[in-house]
């Protein structure tokens, strides 16, 4: 059975979109909820547990969206910068190695 994966939604405001566009990465964005741009980074079970432990304000929305939400903005900024640097959304291993 495929391993369950849980998205972290990095919502893209104008500032983030500009950085993506400059890096030629605008295609990484998906469109959701009537026009919101989002980049989705996927965590496996172990990564999800590590994130929830490292960032106590984070919450796994088990009831509705099965996504990891409420990470502090500065944490998402760091993830976002890593995505731009790596030109990929596969950044969680490297990101979590610091925690």
């Amino acid at each position: 059975m495929a391993e369950e994966r849980y998205p972290i939604n990095i919502w893209v405001n104008e500032e983030r979109y500009e950085k993506l566009r400059e890096a030629g990465l605008a295609d990484l964005c998906e469109e959701m909820l009537a026009g919101l741009k989002v980049i989705r980074v996927y965590a496996n079970d172990a990564q999800k547990d590590k994130i929830l432990k490292a960032f106590p304000t984070a919450k796994f929305d088990s009831a509705t969206t099965k996504s990891i939400e409420l990470l502090p903005k500065d944490v998402k900024d760091k993830m976002f910068d890593l995505i731009v640097q790596k030109k990929s959304v596969e950044i969680l291993d490297e990101f979590l190695s610091n925690y």
Binding site: N9, I10, W11, V12, N13, E15, M32, L33, A34, G35, L36, K59, D61, A63, T64, T65, S67, E69, L70, L71, P72, K73, K76
Partner: peptide
């Protein structure tokens, strides 16, 4: 379908993004 919850909306607001009026 795109489901959304109060938690997701809080997450959007925390990211400094204004959600669309339909949401």
């Amino acid at each position: 379908w795109q489901k959304f919850s109060g938690t997701v909306i809080r997450s959007i607001v925390m990211d400094g993004v204004k959600p669309p009026r339909l949401i």
